[in-house]
């Protein structure tokens, strides 16, 4: 069998006494697209953040390309370098221009020259369709443009896995599609993706598998067809009814 891109086995996490993640098992094949949904506070962000180690899990195993996230070794850092992340709040560096935001990683982490770094940055700025914004500052861009810059900034590190935590939730409705379009293109190019979102149109189009989380558990995990047409659990059905209503 092919080596899994991401593998979670019996992962548990507590915030103090609060049990946020309960025995999470999840295997993501290379190139697979997973869309995660679930009510607020169900642990979606926490799960995604454990995968790139913004949070530490307390028991169970997380492997990236077969490398276990454990300790601070060099191989762990190499594994994490394969993962890019896009946040709900963009988190661009406001004191740097768009181009400098994109060049920082290639320059300081990959040790590229300025010329190489700029070339990489411009390439990915093209990919997210805003080459003309290179010299602006994040504060001068619309939300949709900022989020596309954030995606490009991740891509500059040439990751094989991309995590998205509600990338369009902070956007005005008219800007959502420009960001989703970029993500659809990325999916088509074979990127391994975990996307937390309630954009079900996007999910239907892109997801290989839908995951429904509730109260720290993965309640349901199915391809979009059966997931939307015949949810197995009552909780999932109720949730889908609620978000698909409008």
């Amino acid at each position: 069998m092919q080596q899994a891109a991401i593998e979670l086995v019996g992962v548990n996490k507590w915030f103090d006494s609060f049990h946020v993640l309960k025995d999470i098992d999840l295997t993501v094949a290379p190139g697979e697209k997973i869309v995660v949904c679930g009510p607020s506070g169900s642990g979606k962000s926490t799960m995604v953040r454990c995968i790139n180690r913004l949070e530490r899990h307390q028991s169970g195993t997380i492997r990236i390309d077969g490398i276990e996230l454990e300790g601070e070794g060099r191989n762990v850092r190499t594994a994490l370098a394969e993962i890019g992340m896009v946040f709900q709040q963009f988190n661009l560096f406001p004191h740097l221009s768009v181009l400098e935001n994109l060049m920082l990683g290639p320059l300081k982490v990959r040790g590229k020259s300025r010329a190489e770094a700029e070339q990489i940055a411009r390439r990915y700025l093209d990919r997210v369709h805003i080459p003309e914004q290179a010299d602006k500052y994040p504060g001068q861009l619309s939300g949709g443009q900022q989020q596309r810059v954030a995606i490009a900034r991740s891509l500059c590190m040439e990751p094989r896995i991309m995590l998205f935590d509600e990338p369009t939730s902070a956007l005005d409705p008219e800007m959502i599609s420009e960001v989703l379009d970029v993500m659809v293109e990325l999916a088509a190019e074979g990127m391994t993706m975990i996307v937390v979102t309630h954009e079900m149109g996007f999910a239907r189009k892109v997801a290989d598998r839908m995951i429904f989380m509730d109260r720290g558990e993965i309640v349901e995990s199915n391809p979009p067809g059966p997931f939307f047409s015949a949810p197995e659990s009552e909780r999932c059905r109720a949730f889908l009814d609620r978000i698909l209503q409008h």
């Binding site: 790139n52 913004l54 850092r77 994490l80 370098a81 993962i83 890019g84 992340m85 946040f87 709040q89 988190n91 661009l92 560096f93 920082l104 990683g105 300081k108 982490v109 954030a150 900034r153 991740s154 500059c156 590190m157």
Partner: peptide, 22 residues
């Protein structure tokens, strides 16, 4: 904001670099 530190971390900057550049 904490998000700045986290964004720096996800593009691979170490702690000193995060302090220095971000």
């Amino acid at each position: 904001a904490r998000g700045q530190r986290e964004a720096a971390q996800t593009i691979g900057l170490n702690r000193a670099q995060t302090m220095r550049y971000v």
